[in-house]
Design a protein around this nucleic acid. Structure first.
Lengths: 228, 228
DNA sequence: CGCCGAGTTGACCATGTTCAAGGTGGGTGG
DNA sequence: CCACCCACCTTGAACATGGTCAACTCGGCG
């Protein structure tokens, strides 16, 4: 995990951008404390783990992150896959309830909670953005619950593909950053069932699988019907 | 749904208590706008419904509220049961994503979002409390996801009983405010499966069912083992 | 080439759902 | 006060779906 102070110009259209707020802060306060730093994490490496102190929260700049929980019996529950622009690790408790790992090589911005809280006291935009982040996570978690309650396995996989397509591309070919196991742990299925669903979709001509990590959605309407 | 301006003294140990903040606000601003009002809702009645404008959010003062979503095919997903002191209906979108209904007769405090947002601009405590509420909902939603992923039906029902016990009583007899159908919709099971699980627990001597809505937990350890 | 991790496929099995038939208890009206 | 009703709950039997276990394939890399 290599770190460097964040100083590049942001291309994010996001309202907050805590970094710019930071600059204001530094000017105003004359403080030299760093609010956000850019961090590079290689694929498969941990960003934070369950139980560790929740000193920071994070925003993905590039790459894909999975946030997950390890159950007692060795199973794993994936709470979310995060892509560029999304915030994760924001928690009320002093310790993280979940773990986060890089699925691909990632660059992420690491924000110091305490510093951001200070900023929030002065800057209305920072404040609103923070709440916005929390609400977005909440919204996602609720949608995830709905997903887990879906009846069929096919229904879940179809909904996942559509969701991922909507978030990562405007085209019809979706690049899956994650393994089948990751998808299974996210949907509450086994790897075999995910595999079978995808194979079935392919047989039905609803998708094509040009390579193991690429899915071409040939018939979104059919998928949407499945996802009900 | 009868309403009255909230003027009673709060017994809640909660940090915020938006009401008192309101008073400060009114003094400071000379505003006559009402931030929170007490509302009484009879059992079975709706508090807000999916798609309606999210003008207010709410805090339970007494009674039990269910927050749920109706799926296309007539099924229903219950996202949470809320008891005294808990906040619900706090959302980022302009419209509610979920519905809320009173399970028992309830008194709830209804807060006007816009007014609270204004307050948050001035009052640090209000601000922190708002974020706290959002985070608590987030935390609950994540736990609910975990619950839905549990393997067995017995596991889910046991976990539910223990959780409800922990929140509503210090004793061993739990009063269920909700129907079996509610429990089923919360756990992602059918009413029959919930019923069978309870019957099984009773046969195993883990619980007693003195009446249909009362459950006496005879062996918490056994339940905790089941809930794994 | 052979290994290894990831993915696929098949057969069997366990679990929860579905459908259908009672049971129970609290409230209402005769 | 009793009988009836209705919503809620329980129970049983057949069935469907996804989990489990095991064998096999595929593709990349030393």
């Amino acid at each position: 995990m290599t770190t460097q102070t964040e100083f590049t110009k942001s291309s994010s259209p996001d309202a907050l951008d805590v970094r710019s707020a930071l600059m204001t802060d530094q000017k105003k306060m004359g403080s030299s404390q760093t609010v956000g730093v850019i961090v590079t994490v290689l694929a498969g490496h941990e960003i934070f783990c369950e139980g560790s102190d929740a000193i920071n929260f994070y925003k993905v700049k590039s790459g894909v992150v999975r946030v997950c929980k390890f159950l007692g019996d060795g199973r794993r529950q994936i709470e979310a896959f995060h892509i560029a622009g999304e915030v994760f690790g924001l928690e009320t408790a002093t310790q993280h309830q979940l773990s986060a790992e890089a699925i691909t090589d990632c660059t992420i911005i690491s924000y110091r909670r305490r510093s951001v809280d200070q900023l929030a006291g002065q800057d209305r935009a920072v404040r609103q953005q923070l709440l916005q982040y929390a609400m977005r996570s909440l919204s996602h978690a609720q949608e995830h619950s709905l997903m887990l309650r879906r009846r069929g396995a096919a229904e879940k996989v179809a909904a996942f593909l559509l969701n991922w397509q909507g978030r990562t591309t405007t085209g019809s070919t979706v690049r899956l950053a994650m393994t089948r196991q990751d998808i299974a742990d996210y949907l509450g299925l086994t790897i075999e069932t995910v595999s079978r669903s995808l194979s079935q979709f392919e047989r039905d001509g609803v998708i094509a699988l040009p390579s193991i990590r690429d899915v071409r959605l040939l018939n979104n309407d059919a998928l949407e019907d499945l996802a009900a």
